[in-house]
Structures are given as C-alpha cells and as structure tokens.
Computed example of a mutant assay.
Amino acid sequence: MAHDLPGWVAELTDPRRARTLDELADRLVPLAEHSIDVSRRLQALLNELNDPFKKEALHDRVDRLKDRSSEALDEVTAEITASGRERIERIRAGWPERLADGERKRLDGEIVAMVERHRHEAAGRVAEATSAGLGEATQLLLTRVEELAKVVTDLIHDVLPLAREGLTLASRISALSARSRQSGRGPVPDELRDEGAEVAREFDEAVARLELEWAALGARSATVRAALRGAEEAAFSQVTNAMTQCVEDLAPAHVQALNQVETRAQSLLDELT
C-alpha cells in the first residue's frame, strides 16, 4: 500500500525546486546530514560485524567453552561421587546395631577407601575424555571462526568505500550550501542551480544505494552472529558428547565396582560377626 507524502514536502525540501539562494542553502543542509547519518550507520554496522573477530572476543569465546566444559565435568563428577555416597549409606544402613565402634570404623574406613579409589579412577577417565573432546572442539571452533572471519573481512573491505563515499558526498553538499549562502539572497544563478540539481541526483542515488547496503549488511550481520553462536554451541556439544560417551562406557564398570564394594563390606561384616 503506497504512502505518498503530501506534494508540499518536495516543494519545501527538494533543492531543485529552490527559488532563492537561501532556499537552496537551507535545502542542501538536510541532504548532507542524511548522507553523514547513513554513512555513520553503515560504518557502525561494519564495526559491529568485525567486533566478534577481534583477538579479545576470540579469547572470550574459547574461555566460555572451557568454563562450560569445566562446569559440565563438575556435574558429572558430582554424580559419580553422589552414587558412591548413596551406596555407602545403603551399606551402613544394613549394619547391625550391636557392632562396636571400632568395628564400625574398620568397616567404614575400608569401604570408603574402596569407593574413593573407584571415584578417583572414574572421574579421571571422564576428565581425560573431556580434555580430549575440548581440544578437538576448540580446534574446530577456531577453524570455523577463521573461515568466517575471512569472509567478513572481504565484505568489510568491499562495503567500507561506500560509507566513505557518503561522507565525501556530504562534504560536497555542505560546501555547495555554504557557497549558496555566501552568494547573497537573490534568485539562484543557473550555475548553482545546475550544481544543486546534480548533487541532489547524486544524493538520491547514493543514499538509496547506502540504505540498501545498510539493510543487507544488517541481515548479514545477524547471520554471522547466529553462525558464531551455532559454532560455539556445536563445539560445546562435541565436548559433552565425548563426556557422555565416556560415562556410558563407564556405567557397567561403575555399577560393578560399587557391587564389589558392597560384597566386600558384607564379607568383612561376616568376619566380624
């Protein structure tokens, strides 16, 4: 649905319709301001697009991956510890009340030591798997970021001259506005009228091109941010997959080790009672 502006808008803003030098000077000023505005917006978007690829941002991304991996490892280690603690409590619950304190301490010391040795071994294997997965995931993440950075760098080099073009045009328009104001208050001379028409035409073409580039760059910037998030999440998933696979491989041995602890505890209890 078209939304055309009232006819008087162009009458009061288009330099080509100026009748006096003051009108020409006044109508050129907003054109220069608009050129500067769209150029600065374009430059700001280019800076925003480049920010995630700076060294500090790259280090932060890798550090986040390491921190998240460490937190996940802590959770798995806590689960291993909790399962061992639950088995110890179950074993203790089956001890007869007539056991002497010394006997309880002996039983407790041996089963706790067995569970702790198994916990240390299992946690160590998970930590090794996590470290290996983290190394591979970090390398893949860095490779993907590097590939994306190359494309973004090429894009910035292509678009940056357009932003400078807008500033150059704004400078020309401002200079013409100043000349018009310095020329007096009479009708617009043919020479200035022609120059005003020419810069107005160039303004229309340049700003349309810059606005379109700004919109396209905004969409590309959003895609790049999503890609970086995706690469980071994929790297973390790679680490957790390695961790999960290790835990699944350990699960039967873990249950068997806790069963052995319980069997040993029962054997010691039989000896004592």
Rank of each mutant, 00 (worst) to 15 (best):
I88H: 15
K55I: 06
L134M: 01
A113H: 03
R125K: 11
G94H: 05
E128F: 02
L160W: 07
E165Q: 11
A93S: 13
V76W: 09
R119C: 00
T143Y: 08
I80Q: 05
V159L: 09
E33M: 11
I111A: 04
A149S: 14
P161I: 06
L148K: 13
A32W: 06
S39N: 12
V152T: 13
V76R: 11
Q139V: 12
A149Q: 14
A44D: 05
D63K: 15
V76S: 05
F53N: 07
R87V: 09
A100G: 14
T77D: 01
H59L: 10
E56W: 12
I156V: 14
L155A: 14
L45N: 10
E128A: 13
E116C: 01
E75Y: 08
L46I: 12
E89I: 04
L142M: 11
E110Y: 09
D158V: 09
L46R: 11
R104I: 04
E146F: 08
L162H: 15
S69W: 00
L148C: 11
D63Q: 08
T153A: 15
V76P: 01
L45D: 04
G94T: 12
L31M: 09
S70M: 06
A93L: 06
R164L: 11
E146P: 01
G109S: 11
G102K: 10
R68L: 13
K66L: 06
R41N: 11
V159H: 04
D101W: 05
R64E: 06
K105D: 09
L148R: 15
D158F: 08
D51Q: 14
T77K: 12
V151I: 12
V159Y: 06
F53P: 12
A72Q: 03
A72D: 03
G109F: 01
L140H: 07
R85V: 10
G102C: 04
K55F: 04
G133H: 01
E56D: 06
A113Y: 02
R104G: 03
V159F: 09
N47F: 14
S69N: 02
L160Y: 05
D67P: 00
A93E: 14
A129F: 02
Q139K: 15
L160R: 13
R41V: 12
R125Q: 08
L140F: 08
K105C: 03
V126Q: 00
G166A: 05
R40Y: 02
S83F: 09
N47T: 14
E89H: 10
P96Q: 12
D60I: 08
E121M: 07
E79M: 13
L42G: 10
A129G: 03
D108C: 00
R68V: 07
R98C: 11
V115W: 00
A44H: 10
S69T: 03
R104N: 04
D74R: 14
E103G: 13
V159P: 10
K66A: 07
E89P: 00
G94R: 04
L107I: 08
T130P: 10
S35V: 02
R64W: 08
I80N: 04
H157W: 09
E48Q: 14
S131D: 02
I88C: 08
R87H: 11
R40F: 03
E86P: 01
E136A: 09
R106P: 00
E128H: 10
Q43R: 15
N50Y: 14
A132K: 15
R41L: 15
I111H: 05
